[in-house]
Design a protein around this nucleic acid. Structure first.
Lengths: 144, 144
DNA sequence: TATTGTTATACTCTATAACTATA
DNA sequence: TATAGTTATAGAGTATAACAATA
């Protein structure tokens, strides 16, 4: 009567189905562990991208993370209210802003990124380092 | 200035990030190809599960697909309106319904499932059969 | 007392069109 | 003419609480 008795045979032969299920599984632990930082998965991705690309534009973030521009606006507003990010006039493009972390944003991410890395290892505890690396290589060959 | 110049180094070292990106990539082709069947990804998953488990209950579907019961109600109502599924009194549990495909639902899925399998191969064209199988094995060790 | 299915509802995420300022 | 950022808004997906019927 439990899930074990259900024949999910066809679905489980699909890469897309398994990628989604695995992603949801990791995301569950992510939300749990990242509560202390008050960071949603997307918030974390955006902040990490800004951290490693100071001066990046909103447009480049949208391209990299596959976000729609209007949706990034409210997200950035939240991060701005929390004083985690800073916008400065773009040096060459008057339409754009150059984004970077505030000292507080930097402090937060210097803790959040290691936490995320550890969380990943815990969420994929059945895999060793080599298997985890190969999994990532295979996944990237799909979307890159 | 394009996405290629962006350092996504930290994020791309995370299994969760890559699983999500790969899943989104496959989902894009899924929605495109499945338009002819008028099936959302979740609709397809539910119908496939019912097809291979005739008499299955809504509860078992929720457990298998990680859905919340209230959300399945509207979804089932749509499939019911399209006369793709049928509910019959459960043989042993008076609270539950036994779900199965109608002949029309069976006809639709006999076309949709092979289309989904082909779509997967196309969306993961950089992988050969062995790599695809290994990718699935690795993903399942995360969530199963 | 617990579980199945359901209703109502709220919240978040995602998507589209239209506008401004600049390139 | 095209692009960066923004506003407003509609739609889809996801979440919780509460209820009736049955186990």
């Amino acid at each position: 009567m439990g899930a074990a008795a259900v024949d999910g045979g066809f679905l489980r032969g699909l890469v897309g189905y398994n990628a989604r299920r695995a992603g949801v599984s990791i995301l569950g632990l992510f939300k749990e562990r990242m509560q202390v930082f008050d960071l949603q998965p997307v918030d974390f991705s955006v902040l990490s991208l800004i951290r490693h690309n100071p001066g990046i534009t909103a447009r480049a973030i949208c391209d990299e993370l596959n976000l729609m521009a209007p949706n990034l606006v409210r997200l950035m507003a939240r991060l701005d209210e929390r004083a985690l990010v800073r916008r400065q006039p773009h040096p060459t493009d008057g339409r754009a802003w150059g984004l970077s972390l505030t000292p507080e944003g930097e402090r937060l991410m210097s803790q959040a990124e290691p936490a995320a890395a550890q969380l990943e290892v815990d969420a994929t505890a059945d895999l060793n380092d080599e298997e985890r690396a190969q999994l990532i290589r295979l996944l990237q060959r799909i979307y890159l």
